Simulated scan of single mutants.
Amino acid sequence: MNNSRLVYSTETGRMCPDCGKPKAKCSCQKKKKGKEAPQPFPQDGVVRIRREVKGRKGKTAIAIFGLPLEGQDLKDFAKYLKQKCGSGGSVKDGVIIIQGDHRETAAEAIKEKGYKVKLAGG
């Protein structure tokens, strides 16, 4: 087995493992950076409410995503929804998670605020 792949050189510095060129002159890393990461949920202006059980030890929760809010506005909206549903919840990565199956209640509360709502999942 030949383990002579050059990783670092005192003359050129770090080497790219894919093309073998110095990192500063590497063209394959620039191609990888050009690709954008896919969005975790569609940004089409429709708020989706999905029922989830997986990863929650059998407990049901709803995930609300697609809201055009960020930061404190999203947290305030989550607080409003938790009060309407009478349940706990949290905000993680731009998704509002509410404990229990309150899809209809949450959908009505979101419609009251003027957003277009779609129930997703079973």
Rank of each mutant, 00 (worst) to 15 (best):
K54Q: 12
K21Y: 11
Q83V: 12
V95M: 07
G66N: 08
S87V: 02
S27P: 03
D101G: 00
G100D: 12
D73V: 03
D44E: 09
P68C: 05
P40S: 05
Q83N: 14
K21F: 10
K23R: 15
A78P: 00
K82Q: 14
S4E: 15
Q72M: 11
C26W: 02
L81F: 02
F65S: 04
C16K: 05
R51E: 05
K33C: 00
L119G: 03
T12K: 14
A109F: 02
V46P: 01
F65D: 02
I62C: 00
L119P: 05
V46Q: 05
K54P: 03
A109H: 06
G86F: 09
T12W: 12
C26E: 06
P42Y: 02
K118P: 00
C28M: 07
S4T: 14
A61H: 14
D93N: 10
H102I: 11
I64G: 07
K111D: 00
M15D: 04
P38E: 11
A63H: 15
T10S: 08
E36Y: 07
G89I: 01
K54I: 11
T12F: 12
D73E: 15
K118G: 03
Q83G: 07
A24Y: 04
G89C: 06
G89D: 04
P68Q: 07
E112D: 14
G20N: 13
Y8G: 04
I96P: 03
V91M: 01
K59F: 01
A63F: 12
G121D: 04
R56N: 12
V47L: 09
A109G: 02
N3P: 03
V91H: 04
N3E: 11
D18S: 15
T105N: 04
G45Y: 15
S4D: 15
D18Q: 11
G89H: 04
K31D: 00
A107L: 09
R51T: 12
A24C: 03
V47T: 11
K57F: 08
C85G: 02
D18R: 15
I97Q: 10
Y8H: 13
K113G: 06
G114W: 05
Q39V: 08
K31W: 04
L69D: 02
K84A: 09
K54T: 13
I49C: 00
T105Q: 11
G88D: 13
S27H: 10
D44A: 05
V7S: 10
V7N: 10
K23I: 14
K116R: 15
V95H: 09
V117R: 06
K84W: 02
Q29P: 04
K59P: 03
I49F: 08
L74W: 01
K57I: 06
S87T: 15
D18K: 14
Q39W: 07
A106D: 06
A37F: 06
L67C: 01
F65A: 05
E11A: 13
R103T: 12
F65E: 10
R14L: 13
K32Q: 12
N3T: 11
P38V: 13
V47H: 05
Y115F: 15
E36H: 10
G100V: 08
T105L: 07
K57G: 09
F77K: 05
S4L: 14
R50S: 00
I96L: 07
T60L: 14
C26I: 02
E52A: 08
L67H: 01
A78D: 01
I97M: 12
P38R: 15
G89L: 01
G13Q: 06
A37Q: 13
